[in-house]
Design a protein around this nucleic acid. Sequence first.
RNA 1: GGCCUGUUGGUCAAGUGGUUAAGACGCGGCCCUCUCACGGCUGAAACAGGGGUUCGAGUCCCCUACGGGUCACCA
Length: 480
Amino acid sequence: MTTNIRTRFAPSPTGYMHIGNLRTALYEYLLARSGGGKFLLRIEDTDVERYVEGATEVIYNTLKVAGIQHDEGPDVGGPFGPYVQSRRRESYAKYAEELVDKGGAYMCFCSKERLDSLKEHDPHAKYDRACLALTTEEARARRDQGEGCVIRQLIPDGETTFRDEIFGDITVAHTELEDQVLLKADGYPTYNFANVVDDHLMQISHVVRGSEYLSSAAKYTLLYHAFGWDVPVYIHLPPVMGSSGKKLSKRLGDSSFEDLLREGFLPEAIVNYIALLGWSPGGEREIYSLGELEEIFGTQGLSKSPSIFDKVKLTWMNSEYFKNMDEQKFFVMAEPYLKDAVKRPGADLRLLAGMCRPRIEFLTDITKLLGFIDELPSYDIALFEHKKMKTTASNALENLRKVLPRLEAVALWDLAGIRAELEDFIKGEGLKNGQVFWPIRTALSGKESSPCGAPELAELLGREESLRRIRHGIELLEQS
RNA sequence: GGCCUGUUGGUCAAGUGGUUAAGACGCGGCCCUCUCACGGCUGAAACAGGGGUUCGAGUCCCCUACGGGUCACCA
């Protein structure tokens, strides 16, 4: 059994961390943690043209907020640095030379034009190996004279079989493979090369990446063989798709991690949701903290087929996180929204927080939920009619008129006092609860639903405001 | 187009030859109840199609269909 698990998240800094990327990072992190190993971050910035300013900050921040902390990386250091590929250039050149000497690669001087012309008749034509005819000495001499060149991998005859943890054994005939460029003319390595070299040097044991690399894996395997290095365990993840059925992307308007946070999703909920998107621990449980996931994660639960990102289910999970959250923590998070929604002095914000908690999917829902407290919305008297409550406009009016003086006479305006008075009234009149509670609740809130019932509303609003709203309700009913 | 690969309810998914094919989200109904929400119960809803192998196939094999990936001096 492997005990030295080392995984890595190796994004290229494009400035946009989509959910699929984050999930990959999460699985890499969980795999390392579940085996007591290390998780590292490596920035793959070998494409100078695509570099985006500030993009690495997005990566750091996303991982931090998600709680996916790396043990080694550009910002935290580590024994295998630097962890930024642009700062490891000499290393790639050195290994490329080594591979040339070992016969696993060769220099190529072909121009872009010549390469293009090869594809004129067949766009899928492979490089014709023209430069393979050169001896290494000839090639080096030309290069020393300043002629631009790239280094290409020499694909031998035959076929390669590699194993993927998810997909099993895959065999690829070498005729399908091209002598791909390993070192570009600008001296930078291609992803295909840098990845293999770095993964080896950083002693990565498990390579987790998107399944778009599956068809390249044979080439990487050949590279490891050519160097005489151990091949890591491959884990190719199927993609996360948007509701369009296409892979998640910024272009299609799919939300990034940061977008989701802005929309009000909790990082814990997002992490929990994406952990289960393409992986299952088995069993029926669905709510897991990051710490719990670290304990139970394993590659055997990984799915082979793509998954569609479902914001509706994520929304449900978000509300679950509010419901299960520590009371004080919820209050601290909700407080700004509560204060914004309810300006009335003396409002019991903790009580309100407790009411909102099981009723919200997002913190912003609080505003809608409590807006009626400061100001009674204008409402239609049709609200007083409720079939199930057995209320009509006329009996609502009648009951409100009757109960008003009773409420006016309540000595101590608190929940117990109000409730006792109302219950006594109902009993005395021989009515159903709803016939009294419903009209009062309606008059007090002006809404068809409220986060609490009539007595609670009355206490919340206070004697004066409550009586005022009930009188207003009576007036509305009288006018019709 | 070649090659690689996938396909269980609308969605996420369990299932590794014998099950009435779990569970969750969403949707419908009921209960609780002064509304809404929570909670509880419940319903509709799936093995892409066709051939094999087998006493027996969602599970193994083949073909077809549909989908995804890849074929760059991008990652």
